[in-house]
């Protein structure tokens, strides 16, 4: 029924990168996330699946404190990156976001050239001292985003002029240019056609070698294809979390089974 998970069945246990304990999120009076415990491993693709409005994107945005930009949003509980509480007062969300990169649902290149789009992060973090260094960082990021060959001759053209799939890979390149440790992806393929989706999925599999990747997806096939670990969210609860192979072939919770067989959603 589903494609075989990339390497889910024989997962090696990696060290825990992000640990969440009893996380609750409120939007005003709405209780969006309820007591979520999850451990995200290093060098692993973790997929968040679940029906619309189940809180998977909200939870993802807690991991790099993007919810801080929403006034009415309140986060409780502990989220630790490498053992350090990211909501501690001593943590600067700006520095946190440099370590935890994010790719959004809709490609959102800046209205700047392709080069400037990728160079934006390295520039603001002072990662390059010379123009040559910056050039190198940009090229490396674009290569890692699997888009170098398509754009290398038109780096000065606006990033907004690329096709949707190219824009999304540009955004991935932009996110990896700052050398993050974790890459959060919020439905990165929902605006893409099947070919671009396949390219991005291939890219995610490559990125796993260096980063911890968390991907929110509506497509269960995609979760099965790219992830090693899968978390199923339903109505703000984390219903089940485990090896992707196990979740899709032998779910413990009846709600998970109902969802993956298409009965709820």
């Amino acid at each position: 029924m589903y494609d075989t998970p990339a390497s889910g069945k024989t997962a090696v246990t990696n060290e825990v990168k992000i640990a969440a304990r009893k996380v609750n999120v409120f939007y005003g009076d709405t209780h969006a996330i309820k007591d979520v415990d999850v451990e995200i491993e290093d060098k692993t693709v973790t997929a968040f699946i679940g029906p619309s409005g189940c809180g998977k994107s909200t939870f993802l945005r807690c991991l790099n404190r993007m919810n801080d930009t929403i006034d009415i949003c309140r986060v409780e509980g502990l989220i630790a990156l490498d053992g350090e509480d990211i909501y501690a007062p001593s943590i600067d969300p700006v520095q946190l976001r440099a370590k935890v990169g994010m790719v959004f649902q809709k490609p959102n290149p800046f209205p700047k050239s392709i080069y400037e789009n990728v160079a934006y992060g390295p520039k603001i973090h002072g990662m390059a001292r010379t123009r040559a260094e910056l050039d190198e960082i940009v090229e490396r990021a674009l290569r890692r985003g699997a888009i170098w060959d398509e754009v290398k001759d038109r780096l000065q053209e606006p990033g907004t002029g690329l096709s949707g799939g190219q824009q999304q890979r540009l955004c991935i390149a932009r996110a990896v240019a700052t050398e993050p440790e974790v890459l959060l992806m919020d439905e990165p393929c929902s605006a893409l056609d099947p070919i671009a989706t396949a390219q991005v999925e291939e890219l995610i599999d490559e990125l796993r070698e260096q980063y911890s990747v968390v991907i929110v997806t509506h497509s269960m096939q995609q979760a099965a294809r790219v992830s090693q670990k899968t978390a199923f969210f339903h109505l703000g609860n984390l219903v089940e979390f485990g090896e992707t192979g196990q979740i899709f072939t032998n779910p413990h919770d009846p709600r998970t089974e109902s969802y993956i067989t298409g009965r709820i959603g």
Partner: peptide, 10 residues
């Protein structure tokens, strides 16, 4: 665009 920039640590 704002989110994209903030998410890069700007």
């Amino acid at each position: 665009l704002r989110d994209g920039s903030l998410a890069l640590g700007a």
